[in-house]
Simulated scan of single mutants.
Amino acid sequence: MTGVHSRVDDDGVAVVTLDRPQARNALDWAAWESLGEQLAGLDRDDVRAVVLTGGDRWFSAGGDVTSMGSNPGSGVTAPAARVRLAHRVVRALTTCRAPVIAAVEGFAVGAAWGLVLSCDLVVASREAFFAAPFAQRALVADAGLAWSLSRHVGHQRAAELLLLGERLPADRAHELGLVTRLVAPGEAGESALALARRLAAGPADAIALTTSLLRRAPDRTLDGFLDDEHVAVALNGHSPDLAEGRQAFLEKRPPRFR
């Protein structure tokens, strides 16, 4: 058992579930490896939206601290062998053709928070919280969390969250722009699925290209971004969905995208 399973529905929505309830979905070596492989396998045309969830009780307690001493690897970088797996997952989330939605119940702690912030949209229970208690455990923040937090909330707030490790309630995370939508407890999964189905029914090419532009924008100069935008608009001009969108607008009817 790897503690991760996935499925793809007929409507093109993929659901990836962290499932190690005995460890509050903490990710050990096998789970990290499986998560990376499954996410990479979903980067294909028939998958139009992805939901990443930990189920109805919690998202994840982060990396499995109890198994960290058993990392395979050798040499000076051996203690960071597991981080390579986490990085593979982060890259899979941030390069997936389809938009990725995190559904958070309970909590997302440590590296799991890094995974959440690697998603395009985040739906969280109002009672959920986030935390990064790395320093309190004599650990260095991983899963790209220092990069993600600095990018979203700036150096000062990121430093506070990472160095002090205090809990950040979901409502405050929403105020800071770290959560897209707040929902009642127990409804994060269904709400994320509803968003995913809405995206899956839309124009796949335009959504994929827009998602790519959004992910790349913060690291581009304006000139560089405008070049990317020019290419994206040109590519989308070849999409059958564009013609359908125009025709539906002219005929004043809902579009029927492929």
Rank of each mutant, 00 (worst) to 15 (best):
A196N: 12
D120A: 04
A200I: 09
G177M: 11
L195R: 08
A143E: 04
L193V: 13
L149T: 13
R181W: 08
V123L: 00
G186N: 00
A146S: 15
H155E: 13
A131N: 10
F130M: 11
A196S: 13
L182M: 09
G114E: 02
S150M: 15
L195E: 08
L199C: 01
R126C: 10
P185A: 13
G144N: 02
S191A: 14
A111G: 06
R167A: 14
V153L: 14
A131H: 11
S118R: 00
R126D: 06
F129H: 04
D120L: 00
A184P: 00
L168P: 05
A192Y: 07
L117F: 05
A204R: 02
L176I: 02
A132L: 08
A194G: 11
A196W: 11
A184H: 01
F130I: 12
L199K: 01
E160Q: 11
A158D: 10
G186F: 05
A138T: 00
A159F: 02
S191D: 07
L178Q: 04
A138M: 03
L199G: 03
L161A: 15
A194R: 14
R137E: 12
L195Y: 14
G114Y: 09
L178H: 04
V140G: 04
F134L: 14
L139M: 13
R137Q: 14
G186L: 05
V116E: 04
A170G: 07
L121S: 08
D120Y: 06
H174Y: 14
L163T: 12
L195A: 05
A141Q: 02
R198C: 11
H155V: 13
R151H: 11
G114F: 11
A173M: 11
A135G: 02
A208L: 04
P203F: 04
L121Y: 05
G165C: 06
R172A: 14
R172G: 06
F134E: 07
A159C: 09
G177L: 11
F129R: 00
R172Y: 02
R181P: 01
R157P: 03
R198V: 04
A124G: 01
V179P: 01
E127Q: 12
F130C: 14
G114I: 07
P133V: 07
E187D: 12
A143L: 10
S148W: 13
L195K: 03
S191W: 03
D142M: 11
A128N: 05
V140M: 10
A159R: 03
R181T: 08
V122M: 08
S212P: 00
L178F: 09
A143R: 00
A131W: 13
D120H: 05
A208T: 06
T210G: 00
G165Q: 01
L145S: 09
R167M: 13
G114P: 05
D205A: 04
W147H: 12
H174I: 03
F134Q: 09
T180P: 01
G202K: 03
F129V: 01
A208C: 08
L195I: 10
S118H: 10
G186E: 00
A194I: 07
F134T: 14
D171G: 12
R151P: 06
P185G: 10
R198L: 12
